[in-house]
Simulated assay, not measured.
Amino acid sequence: MHGRKPYLVGHQEFAALYGVEPQMVGQWLAPSRGVLDPATAIVVSGVRYWPLGFACRFGKTTARPKLLNVRLRERLIAEQGEGWEPDLGEELPPIVGQHEIIELFHLPSQGTLATRIAQGGFPEQDWLLSGSRLWLLDTVIAAVPELRASARTVSWEVDQKVEAALRAGTYDGPGSVVLTRGRHARKGV
């Protein structure tokens, strides 16, 4: 049986595992390079995240092998707490960021959620990766009674269709795709 949450990495952590700048991960993802398949990542709030197992294995799969920083891997595991090391995105439970949470509750603005988080009235994130907060969907759903009890104007009603789509991996609302920037934006993903 796996621990409560899987170990993940964002662009910054992925790059640090191989001693490169975070922009290099974007270059690996570039269609012209074809080094890193975008399908290996999950997208949460418009940003890619990878299972740690895949990220650690990646360096051995490239034409020019890359050396993994094993100490950093150990530190990431320690920082993320009790969990397990998945290799594939399909192994992951539903994970949400601010975009998905706003849609899940039909919040009036991102500021509503940001204020709630800043004031400590929202569950602590399960991950803080590459500067972004992420939660297990179950963490957010479990907090609904407490959110409702302390609410003044927001009802904190869960949209069952959004929750079902997040659980099924079929969510296609805000944050479900990466908005490509730079010279590859014109080509589409």
Rank of each mutant, 00 (worst) to 15 (best):
F105C: 08
G131L: 10
V35K: 14
I42R: 03
P145M: 12
R57Y: 05
V43T: 14
A114Q: 14
G26P: 09
E85H: 00
S130Y: 07
P65H: 10
L52P: 07
F105E: 05
I95C: 09
F105G: 06
G97E: 01
A39Y: 00
A142G: 00
P38Y: 05
V144W: 01
V9E: 13
A55L: 05
E82F: 10
Q98Y: 00
F14P: 11
R33I: 10
S45R: 06
Q12I: 03
W84C: 02
C56R: 13
P94F: 01
Q27I: 02
R57M: 09
A16Q: 11
Q27P: 00
K60Q: 11
G19E: 09
W50Y: 12
T115Y: 11
A15I: 14
E146Y: 07
V96L: 03
G120Q: 14
T62F: 03
G111K: 02
L8W: 07
A16H: 05
E13N: 09
W135R: 13
S45K: 04
R133E: 04
E79F: 04
S109L: 07
G26W: 02
L147K: 10
G121H: 15
L107A: 06
D87K: 03
A78L: 11
A143K: 14
G26C: 12
Q98F: 00
T61P: 01
P93S: 10
G111E: 01
A143Q: 14
A16D: 11
V144E: 08
L67F: 10
H106S: 13
A142N: 04
G131H: 08
R64P: 01
V70E: 12
Q125K: 13
G19N: 10
R48D: 00
E82T: 13
L137G: 07
W84H: 04
G46E: 04
P123L: 15
I141E: 07
L104F: 02
R64N: 02
L8K: 07
T115N: 15
P94W: 00
T40V: 13
A41K: 01
H11N: 14
Y18N: 11
R64S: 06
H11T: 15
L136V: 00
L92D: 10
A142C: 00
R116D: 08
S109V: 09
Q12H: 06
W135K: 14
V35P: 03
C56H: 01
Q23E: 14
K60F: 01
G34E: 09
N69R: 05
Q12P: 00
F58Y: 11
L17Q: 11
L107T: 05
G46H: 04
C56E: 13
Q23A: 15
W84G: 07
L104R: 03
P86V: 08
G26R: 13
P94H: 00
L107I: 06
E82A: 13
E85D: 03
H106Y: 02
L113H: 00
P22N: 06
